[in-house]
């Protein structure tokens, strides 16, 4: 990508007002969305998210992990109020090394609980680019997901929002941070999550 000489002056993001009582779910801050003219960018972001979903449903774990930057993190917070996964309980807080452990386990011939019919279907929608920092090449993308899982004659559903912090690289987008907030993340789990949502 050609280096822009003059970066547009960035507006300082407004700090959210401090609340005395934390909101149960943080409200989505209205942000100036990326101009509609940039439909091509939105299209390429959407294709990237669809591809990630396909990799999960197709159990192509290696390729799934490859979508993350070397320091990329997959994070599923323990509660929607959390603003970082660092040093707090999380359902998932995995870098590529921990993701590799999970992948190797899923593929091990003695991963006993994997020896049953298991499949997932991801649907991604409501994709919106929240910020596009041309200077750093980083994008923040919000979307909604619905995952239906069928495992050993039982069906489960998980649905909620993804926030992808994407970096532009010579190989296309890579994920620096993926935040996963399922609306039912805090309920009791019938069984556990063996793979990423």
């Amino acid at each position: 990508m050609a280096k822009k000489k003059k970066a547009a002056p960035r507006k300082k993001a407004a700090r959210p007002a401090k609340r005395s009582v934390p909101a149960r779910r943080p409200a989505v801050r209205a942000k100036a969305s990326v101009p509609a003219a940039d439909g091509a960018l939105l299209g390429s972001v959407e294709r990237f998210l669809y591809r990630q979903a396909e990799l999960l449903d197709g159990r192509r774990w290696d390729d799934f992990i490859e979508l993350f930057t070397a320091d990329g993190i997959y994070w599923m917070p323990a509660s929607p109020e959390q603003t970082t996964g660092d040093g707090v309980p999380s359902i998932f807080y995995e870098d590529r090394n921990l993701m590799t452990v999970r992948m190797k386990r899923l593929r091990h011939p003695h991963a006993w609980s994997q020896m049953t019919a298991w499949g997932t279907s991801h649907l991604i929608g409501n994709v919106a680019i929240e910020t596009d920092d041309r200077r750093t090449g980083e994008l923040v993308v919000r979307s909604r997901f619905h995952v239906m899982e069928f495992r050993h004659d039982a069906t489960r559903h998980f649905a909620g929002s993804y926030v992808h912090h994407l970096r532009r690289t010579s190989d296309g987008f890579r994920i620096k941070l993926q935040r996963v907030d399922a609306v039912n993340a805090q309920g009791p789990y019938e069984y556990v999550l063996q793979a990423w949502l």
Partner: peptide
């Protein structure tokens, strides 16, 4: 946690 790789089995 609910993503446990241990208790899954």
């Amino acid at each position: 946690s609910p993503s446990t790789m241990v208790n899954a089995d």
